[in-house]
């Protein structure tokens, strides 16, 4: 396949998967802008409305979308020969490099902080009610960390290809 077409397809995939990933995160912020802690009653009864709502939101789509987004982004940089420059934050590649580091942090957060705690909250991993309540707070903070990180992520990703790179030469 022609390298330019491959690059365009990767960029398309990167955008689509990124919108699915961050879109899920933003959706949770819009639907629940203010934190409301779970209580023991929510978790001790599997039929409670809040627990059922939590359970139905767990489908893994955004977690896997994060892997697709990250992989497509990395592959794009690699096939352009700019991965090394982005990793070392060299010159005009510094903005996309910063975006890449933030995106990597977000993916690791989703998989290795949010997910293990959310598994306990949902009862997918056995835990006491008090432990599940503690984990629900960490899940919230982890999710909002990614919301917060998405702002500089999008700024530096956009700056890398839409004029920002020129400013940083």
């Amino acid at each position: 396949m022609d390298a330019a077409i491959f690059d365009l397809l990767l960029r398309w995939l990167h955008f689509l998967a990124g919108m699915i990933w961050v879109g899920h995160n933003y959706s949770s912020v819009v639907q629940r802008p203010t934190y409301r802690p779970l209580c023991a009653e929510d978790l001790s009864n599997d039929d409670s409305p809040r627990f059922q709502a939590l359970l139905h939101r767990e489908h893994g789509v955004f977690r896997w979308a994060s892997v697709v987004t990250w992989s497509a982004g990395l592959l794009m940089l690699w096939q352009r020969g700019t991965l090394g420059g982005a990793l070392s934050l060299s010159g005009a590649l510094a903005p996309i490099g910063i975006g890449m580091y933030i995106g990597t942090l977000m993916m690791l957060n989703a998989w290795f902080v949010l997910w293990p705690h959310q598994q306990k909250v949902l009862g997918l991993v056995p835990a006491t009610i008090s432990e599940r309540l503690r984990c629900s707070r960490i899940s919230h903070l982890s999710s909002r960390t990614n919301t917060m990180l998405s702002l500089p992520l999008l700024f530096f990703m956009a700056a890398g290809a839409h004029g920002g790179a020129y400013l940083f030469k």
Binding site: P33, Y35, A94, I98, R144, L151
Partner: peptide, 30 residues
């Protein structure tokens, strides 16, 4: 309350981090 407990607090922190990283890029990295 923790800034993450409201949507506004979360967005403001994100904007602040963007500015800080921009300053880091401009004055330190490049």
């Amino acid at each position: 309350r923790h800034p993450y407990d409201t949507a506004t607090g979360t967005v403001l922190l994100g904007a602040l981090l963007t500015v800080l990283l921009l300053a880091l890029l401009h004055f330190v990295i490049l």
